[in-house]
Amino acid sequence: MKVGVVTFPGSLDDVDARRAVGLGGHEAVALWHGDHDLRGVDAVVLPGGFSYGDYLRCGAISRFAPVMTEVVEAAGRGMPVLGICNGFQVLCESHLLPGALIRNDHQRFVCRDQRLRVENTRTPWTGAYAEGAEITVVLKNGEGGFVADDATLDRLEGQGQVVARYLEVNPNGSMRDIAGVANERGNVVGLMPHPEHSVEALTGSGTDGLGFFTSLVESVWA
Rank of each mutant, 00 (worst) to 15 (best):
V21M: 09
V21L: 10
V21I: 11
G22D: 10
G22M: 05
L23W: 05
L23E: 15
G24F: 00
G24D: 10
G24V: 06
G25E: 08
H26I: 09
H26D: 12
E27V: 11
E27S: 10
A28S: 12
V29W: 00
V29Q: 02
A30R: 08
A30C: 08
A30K: 08
W32D: 12
W32A: 05
W32P: 03
H33N: 04
G34F: 02
G34Q: 07
D35I: 06
D37K: 15
D37T: 15
D37Y: 14
L38P: 11
L38R: 02
L38Q: 08
L38Y: 02
L38E: 09
R39S: 14
G40C: 12
G40N: 14
V41Y: 06
V41G: 11
V41I: 13
V41R: 09
A43G: 11
V44L: 07
V45R: 01
V45A: 04
L46H: 07
P47W: 03
P47K: 04
G48H: 11
G48W: 08
F50C: 11
S51P: 12
Y52T: 05
Y52A: 04
G53L: 11
G53V: 13
G53P: 09
G53D: 12
D54N: 14
Y55G: 10
Y55L: 14
Y55M: 14
L56H: 05
L56I: 15
R57D: 06
R57A: 11
R57M: 08
C58Q: 14
G59H: 05
I61R: 00
I61W: 01
S62V: 01
S62G: 10
S62C: 03
S62L: 01
S62H: 02
R63N: 07
A65F: 00
A65R: 00
P66M: 03
P66E: 08
P66Q: 08
M68V: 04
M68T: 04
T69Q: 12
E70G: 04
V71I: 15
V72P: 05
E73D: 15
E73Y: 12
